[in-house]
Simulated assay, not measured.
Amino acid sequence: MGGKRDEPVNLEKRDTILNEIQYWRKSRLLPEQYCDFLTNLYDDENAVKDSNPISLQNLQQGSIKIWLFGFGIISLFFLISIYFSVFPWPLQIATALSVLIVCYGYAAIFRKRNRMISLMLTGIGSLLTLGFGLWLISLHHLDPDFWQPILIGTCGLLWCVLGFVLRIGILQYCGYAFWALLYAGFFGGMRPDASMLELELLWLPLCVLMVWLSWLLHYRVSGVAGVYFAVGATLWLLPELDALLLRHDYPQWIAFLLLAKIAAELALLFIFRKKWIAWVAT
């Protein structure tokens, strides 16, 4: 019982000592190596975290095994890049899937232990997903009009799912952005001469739907309200962006309409800031 009662006091003393050590380090009252020694002596929690060999401190003080491991990983990556085109296609697919599984798998492992490494691995895996897909389409001379939309839809679905599971909002947002790109491309092929009214009717219902889902789910499902709200805010501008970027014969006044909608959106966000910030931050 006595040990449990004294534990908060000991933690408070430890934090005070660590703050003093950091002050000594910044003020150069003690040499750097002494500050490192004292930090490692008192910060047991940091010692547990630094069992991760990728931390900067362990890279600085680590054994030759860590550096050889890093050399092996980098060499393997470049070997795959150089000889990927001469692999038979089943081995190409297996290699790509293995690399992606490793990236996303370790991103999930480090999600709570080291958020920065998790985000880096997720970003690398996402870029490689798109890169491997485009590379395979080019290597095998596949029809891009058929396979690129499939790749975009697959990446969008994968990023939406992983972004939700790993609670990485930017990845989930990119997934919805790819789905919006696929949606715009499909409708552009079906109706290349669509009027501005058709474009507004194409995008604005989706904008309302995403904002409504953001409000509906903010207290039921964590990690989606902010993403859905950001997607909805983006969809508000997509009719004009669709006309400007994907269509050639558009009226000159669309640019002014885009500026007016941006101003209106910012005004609405300012007026209702207390409401939407409350559910986005939940």
Score class of each variant (00 low, 15 high):
N10G: 09
E12F: 13
K13D: 15
R14V: 08
T16D: 13
Q22M: 07
W24D: 07
R28G: 08
R28Y: 09
L30I: 14
P31N: 12
L38T: 00
L38N: 02
N40V: 12
N40E: 10
N40R: 10
L41C: 03
D43K: 00
N46H: 03
K49M: 07
S51G: 15
Q61W: 06
S63M: 04
L68A: 03
F69L: 15
F69I: 08
G70F: 12
I74V: 07
L76N: 01
F77D: 07
I80F: 02
I80A: 10
S81F: 15
S81V: 07
F84Q: 08
S85T: 00
L91G: 01
T95M: 04
A96I: 15
S98W: 12
I101Q: 05
C103R: 05
Y104M: 06
G105V: 08
Y106N: 09
Y106P: 10
Y106R: 08
I109A: 14
I109D: 12
I109G: 13
R111P: 02
R115E: 10
M120W: 11
L127R: 11
G133Y: 08
H140K: 07
H141R: 09
L142H: 01
P144N: 14
D145L: 12
F146E: 09
L151Q: 06
G163Q: 11
L166I: 10
L171Y: 02
Q172V: 03
Y173P: 05
C174P: 04
Y176T: 01
A177C: 03
W179H: 07
L182S: 09
L182D: 06
Y183L: 04
Y183R: 01
G188P: 05
G189F: 07
M190H: 09
R191C: 09
R191Q: 15
A194T: 04
L197C: 09
L199H: 10
L199Y: 14
L199Q: 06
L217D: 11
L217K: 09
H218L: 10
H218W: 15
Y219M: 14
S222N: 06
Y228K: 09
F229I: 00
F229S: 00
F229A: 00
V231C: 01
G232V: 00
L235P: 01
L237R: 02
L238C: 00
P239D: 02
L244Q: 03
R247H: 11
Q252M: 13
W253S: 11
L258K: 00
L258S: 04
L259M: 14
A263C: 02
A264R: 14
L266W: 05
I271N: 13
F272A: 06
R273D: 05
W276I: 01
W276G: 03
W279Q: 06
V280C: 11
